[in-house]
Design a binder for these strands. Structure first.
Length: 649
RNA sequence: GUCAGGGUAGCUCAGCUGGUUAGAGCACUGGUCUCAUAAGCCGGGGGUCGGGGGUUCGAGUCCCCCCUCUGACACCA
């Protein structure tokens, strides 16, 4: 059976970061592994380029949208090429073939009655390209995800009958417990589906940068919503809707995604496929995120890791090894130079690299670099058996995406080699005139290195080729079958002298991340640098009259009392003096960021003429001004204390 | 708050259906060989298994309560 492996298509809204690299590394390793095993394998990656956000980013950069997308897409492709990623196709959602396929899929769903036309009204966040129900908005206006302002959009839209597939999806999850990996994530998805699925708006009229509607519908003002467009890439890449050239690879064996987009891949995507009467992928693999030195990476902290920078400092393959070895699939991982260096030194240098050097040295001295496996079975049955047992166990780990276990087990081979050298001490045997025994041990280790290199090849393709070359063979499906499956030994060869492949690293090779002191924000000269960037400061599209602004009554308030709202994670109940006789009760979603006792006595800005609302059964008669970004939320407060009730404006 | 999954050596974790002195890797440390990238090998220290109660001849492993962490969902004027 053929194999089909995909990464998500990456959104061309910014440069590739280490998370992108991680997904791509796993997928690449998996694809290489299947190819090594002789499977007919197709490996897809690419870029997601449509949507309003891209349109706007392009504008900000003063570039035509298509050109902007071209440029960012190219940075991804170039990076993967530099990293030697062995994709069979790099798809772009701006490819003509892709658009044709999406239109075809749309027509098919429409003809089936799974897509219908209706109206959508809601609060839309441009940045997240998502509608939010009013109840979810922060302060009635701001996006719960990114904190940006949303706008009310009522538009005609086509809807996909997601609700229709609720039961079939649930059935599929229960019948295929490995559909979502790791399994622990499956529960989250199942609960979400059980909560009820609403039909999905799949077109927009508010922007044009997207796949056009199929001509047959004669409804040109709509374009496809990004997720419909994006998810379908996995089949349009195979020629769906055009020539079906590679559709024999469908269904995918593994589709790798970040945990943040699991829902789209585990719910919407299968539903789309059901609607198209196509089989579902075998596995959706949701991986975790990477932190740096235990902290979330974010632009504002300045601790984002550029994959290229790490690769330049430490080597791309070392990075691949580290990332796949360090973290169990699905878990979050932490990148620190210390952990990275430890793994390079103790595993790559000491265990593997040094072992190769040991036999280069011995064979040079004892046999003029000639290595012959003739006597290995005579003196080393114990080691051979142990080695082949380990080799046979590896496949399960890889097929279950357990790369860290795979590598952990694989590394036991080097321990066997190092131990065998110690136990048999070839230098002693040489003195005792037992040259064949000494050489047998050297040959044993050569075989260990050869077989291990084959199995390590999917993770470290280049360096293992170097090792194989030194050991006089080539890594390919033939040698995999011979040396790993059939347990054959290396034929007579002359080992090549190579310099140490994994030099030990003593000092960190990159600048450390900026020290993180959340409580003492460092002076951000970056802010200064970045501020004067656009020619006009009026990026906002909906300008208002000053009179409209003064329709909101903003006042300084002093917090008199503050307490946590029981049963709520985000709410604090405050009594705020805004100059009236009685303090006003304000319920605010700031509990995660402020302790009640730290608020009492401090001042805040309050919107005082807001229609009162009920939250968790409590009346809220105002709202606090606050700003939120990926680092958290900050209240807006007067620079100097002002009398309670002072108007702002 | 609801649901799910955790809390085991300095660090990262393994411990299946309860059963001899609780394990691995890394780190630390003592010894030792010399083929080797101050690598290798042998040995060692170090854990009241989150807390409390219970079931049992016997519990890290089962039950109850509590504390705490993570994730999803709800809540976010």
């Amino acid at each position: 059976m053929s194999k089909y492996i995909t990464t998500p298509i990456y959104y061309v809204n910014g440069e590739a970061h280490i998370g992108h690299a991680y997904t791509t590394f796993i997928a690449d390793s998996m694809a290489r592994y299947e190819k090594l095993k002789g499977e007919d394998t197709y490996f897809l990656t690419g870029t997601d380029e449509h949507g309003q956000k891209i349109e706007e980013s392009a504008q900000k950069n003063g570039k035509p949208t298509a050109q902007f997308a071209d440029e960012i897409s190219a940075t991804f492709k170039n990076l993967w090429d530099e990293f030697g990623i062995c994709y069979d196709k790099f798809i772009r959602t701006t490819d003509e073939d892709h658009k044709i396929g999406v239109q075809k899929a749309f027509e098919t769903m429409y003809a089936k009655g799974d897509i219908y036309k209706d109206f959508y009204e809601g609060h839309y966040c441009v940045s997240c390209e998502t509608f939010f129900p009013e109840t979810q908005l922060i302060d009635g206006e701001f996006c719960p995800d990114c904190g940006r302002s949303t706008s009310i959009v009522k538009e005609e839209s086509y809807f996909f009958r997601l609700s229709k597939y609720e039961n079939r999806l649930l059935e599929h999850y229960t019948n295929n417990p490995d559909f979502i990996l790791p399994r622990s994530r499956a529960n989250e998805v199942i609960n979400f589906v059980k909560g009820g699925l609403r039909d999905l708006s799949v077109t927009r009229t508010s922007f044009t940068w997207g796949v056009k509607m199929p001509a047959s519908l004669q409804d040109d003002k709509h374009v496809m919503y990004v997720w419909l467009d994006a998810l379908l890439n996995y089949i349009t890449a195979l020629g769906y809707g055009k020539d079906d050239a590679n559709m024999n690879y469908w269904p995918a064996s593994v589709q790798f995604v970040g945990k943040d987009i699991l829902r789209f891949h585990a719910i919407y995507w299968p539903a789309f496929l059901m609607s198209l009467d196509l089989p579902l992928p075998q596995h959706i693999g949701a991986h975790g995120w990477w932190t740096r030195d235990g902290e979330k990476m974010s632009k504002s902290k300045g601790n984002v890791i550029a994959p290229k920078e790490v690769a330049d400092a430490y080597g791309a393959e070392n990075l691949r090894y580290f990332m796949l070895r360090e973290v169990p699939f699905g878990q979050d991982g932490d990148f620190s130079q210390r952990a990275f260096i430890d793994r390079i030194n103790s595993e790559l240098s000491n265990d593997l690299g040094n072992l190769l050097n040991r036999i280069i040295g011995m064979s040079g001295k004892y046999s003029n670099f000639e290595i012959d496996s003739v006597d290995v079975e005579k003196y080393h049955t114990k080691e051979l058996t142990a080695m082949h047992d380990i080799l046979a166990s590896l496949d399960t780990y890889m097929e279950n995406l357990q790369t860290h276990r795979y590598l952990e087990e694989l590394w036991k081979l080097f321990a066997i080699g190092n131990k065998a050298i110690e136990e048999h001490a070839p230098w002693v045997k040489m003195k005792e005139d037992k040259k064949d025994e000494a050489l047998a041990t050297v040959a044993l280790v050569a075989n260990i290195l050869a077989k291990a290199s084959i199995m390590l090849h999917p993770i470290m393709p280049k360096i293992t080729n170097t090792i194989a070359d030194a050991l006089g063979f080539e890594i390919n499906n033939a040698s995999y079958r011979e040396l790993v499956l059939d347990k054959k030994l290396l034929k007579l060869f002359n080992i090549k002298v190579v310099p140490p492949l994994f030099p030990r690293i003593d000092e960190p090779l990159m600048a450390e991340a900026p020290a993180a002191h959340p409580n003492e924000p460092e002076i951000e000269n970056k802010e200064v640098k970045e501020t004067p960037k656009t020619t006009s400061n009026t990026n906002e599209d909906n300008l208002i009259e000053i009179g409209q602004f003064f329709q909101t009554s903003l006042k300084i308030g002093t917090v008199v009392e503050a307490e946590e709202v029981p049963k709520s994670k985000k709410l604090l109940k405050l009594q705020v003096d805004v100059g009236d006789e009685k303090p006003r009760q304000v319920v605010a979603g700031i509990r995660e960021f402020y302790a009640p006792e730290d608020l009492v006595g401090t001042q805040v800005c309050v919107v005082t003429n807001l229609k009162p609302a009920k939250l968790m059964g409590m009346l809220s008669e105002g709202m606090l001004l606050a700003a939120k970004d990926e680092d958290g939320l900050s209240l807006i407060r007067p620079e100097k204390p002002k009398k309670a009730g002072t108007p702002i404006g």
